[in-house]
């Protein structure tokens, strides 16, 4: 097979660094970009640089932000006495999408995983404690992922925050809404049973 032009090969190589992109997808994307109008390609490349130059982390909650303080943290209408702790910015986005939550966030930047060298010092836990001391929240919601790493992180946070915050809660795990019990996997059902709640029978 004839060799591809150097610029083409380079792009394929770069694209493959993206998650979920293998050689075939990279090849297809590179061809697509080749066929794009120059302005479109330019805009794509600019927005990548722009992302790196202009998106910052909020000084308070460490969510992605245009400014020093993110929209949520600077919103007067939100409850600043309520902090929801999540692993990643995308977790906060998911919770925001629900429209159910009117408090603020704290993004840890990961979860405890000693095997991968991630401990409390690698997460924004010191910053969380400083924030808790300053704000004295009424409630902290621990919303780490429902897996081992998330559970270890939650257990660690609970130990740190006990006595410092009057109400510490954890996001419930259970059967997805709108689905049938029939289709829920066994682990989800087991967890849902463990965290079942008492209904008002008065």
């Amino acid at each position: 097979m004839a060799k591809l032009p150097k610029a083409f090969e380079k792009l394929i190589e770069e694209l493959q660094k993206l998650p979920g992109v293998g050689p075939k997808t990279a090849y297809r994307l590179a061809f697509f970009i080749l066929k794009m109008e120059k302005e479109e390609a330019q805009s794509l490349s600019n927005s990548i640089i722009d992302l790196k130059d202009n998106v910052r982390y909020c000084q308070i909650c460490f969510n992605l932000s245009d400014e020093e303080i993110c929209q949520i943290c600077s919103d007067e209408n939100r409850n600043h006495k309520q902090i929801c702790i999540v692993e990643q910015p995308q977790d906060a986005i998911s919770i925001e999408r629900s429209g159910e939550y009117r408090g603020t966030y704290h993004i840890l930047g990961g979860a405890i995983s000693p095997q991968e060298g991630v401990g409390p010092d690698q997460l924004r836990i010191r910053e969380l404690l400083e924030r808790v001391e300053k704000v004295v929240p009424e409630e902290v919601i621990i919303a780490t992922n429902p897996n081992v790493k998330g559970e270890m992180t939650a257990a660690y946070l609970l130990r740190l925050l006990k006595g410092k915050v009057p109400r510490i809660t954890q996001l419930a795990t259970g059967v997805p809404f709108g689905g049938d019990l029939d289709f829920a996997d066994e682990i989800t059902i087991a967890k849902a049973l463990q965290s079942r709640r008492t209904l008002d029978t008065k």
Partner: peptide, 9 residues
């Protein structure tokens, strides 16, 4: 404390 948390889980 990290060990406390791990042992708890």
């Amino acid at each position: 404390k990290e060990l406390d948390a791990i042992e708890e889980v």
